[in-house]
Design a protein around this nucleic acid. Sequence first.
DNA 1: CAACATGATTGTTT
DNA 2: AAACAATCATGTTG
Length: 449
Amino acid sequence: MDEQARIMQALGGVSLAGHSVQGGMALPPPHGHDGTDGDGRKQDIGDILHQIMTITDQSLDEAQAKKHGLNCHRMKPALFSVLCEIKEKTGLSIRGAQEEDPPDPQLMRLDNMLLAEGVSGPEKGGGSAAAAAAAAAAGGSPADNSIEHSDYRAKLSQIRQIYHTELEKYEQACNEFTTHVMNLLREQSRTRPISPKEIERMVSIIHRKFSSIQMQLKQSTCEAVMILRSRFLDARRKRRNFSKQATEILNEYFYSHLSNPYPSEEAKEELAKKCSITVSQLVKLGDLQPCSWRQTVSNWFGNKRIRYKKNIGKFQEEANLYAAKTAVTAAHAVAAAVQNSQTNSPTTPNSGSSGSFNLPNSGDMFMSMQNLNGDSYQGAHVGANVQSQVDTLRHVISQTAGYNDALGGNPMYSPHGLNGNRGWHDAATPSSVISPTEGPGSVHSDTSN
DNA sequence: CAACATGATTGTTT
DNA sequence: AAACAATCATGTTG
């Protein structure tokens, strides 16, 4: 009885001190401030404080009982309202409401990266990556690069697994802690005013703390992935040669477009498909996007162009080879085209040729034709093909001189059409290829060797 | 293992 | 943005 009154006093004193409500006479000393019983009160407060300090020594039951006693005290509602009042004055519950956390760019970066690397986000391909990797390693049947690939995948999925377990752990801990704190607060709300906002705030603080821990996890996961990447994939430079077939196809295209060996995007894609340059060296691991065949095809053409140009002599043989390869069909095609263009009969484009018009090689048969300049043909396919055939023919010419006149005579195939397109390096379409003066298959050229 | 071939990368130019 | 040129690093060959 007496004791509880003293507790109340003590609490009042504490909160006043704590919130520094100076002059806040909301909770004034209950009665007269004459010094007579001041000493007695101090004594009481001392007792209370002592009790509070020693509360840890009490048994749980004891403390619980005391709490209960406090809760049931008749003065409790009054105390409660006083606390509310104080709280309102100090404006404690107001602030913190409007801190809508802006998405942390750092965190977003990490998230994006993890997602991109396939660490977070949905599991790829339905099955577990590890299983797929294991299968690939065991079977060995898929593309040979899958050896490295699977190794990488296995490691990645390991990281992934660790990441997910840890994440789950954090999540769980966070939830547990949150509910714990909420329970605590709820219970405390019986003794002191706690607005829902405050609870919310507390929860968000907890979440923030945990998410900062999560961020560390993400960070180190990212680092691990980076290291893995650099170890395995820095073998980006680790190249594999294309298959013979693939180089064949590429070479065919190249030499049959020697005057303008710049395949369009569509052509590149087509070539890539034909070469079945599949995942081999294109897919940068971790890239979920399907690879850049175009990139690889472009690389090939870039290299080819530059190397061809650098030493035409060296490639002469190859050029002739591929020229000869397509020579017959090309000749037929051109003949047909010429005939068509002259007779102006669009109806039967391949009537002239003896049926064998299927060119298994010339890849641009159905490819883009937009870079055709003087396209006065009606048969689009033929038109698209002509230029390549002309190129091919030029090789043939160098061997079987005599077509020259027929070609040169036709304005359609005049050089204008050929070097009109910014001649890929002036010296690139060398006279040596065309020049009938040189003997067939002559490797001699103007480039000093 | 040296020499060359070749796909990829990087920095510069157009 | 695409092409070029130089260079790298590996693959292949003898």
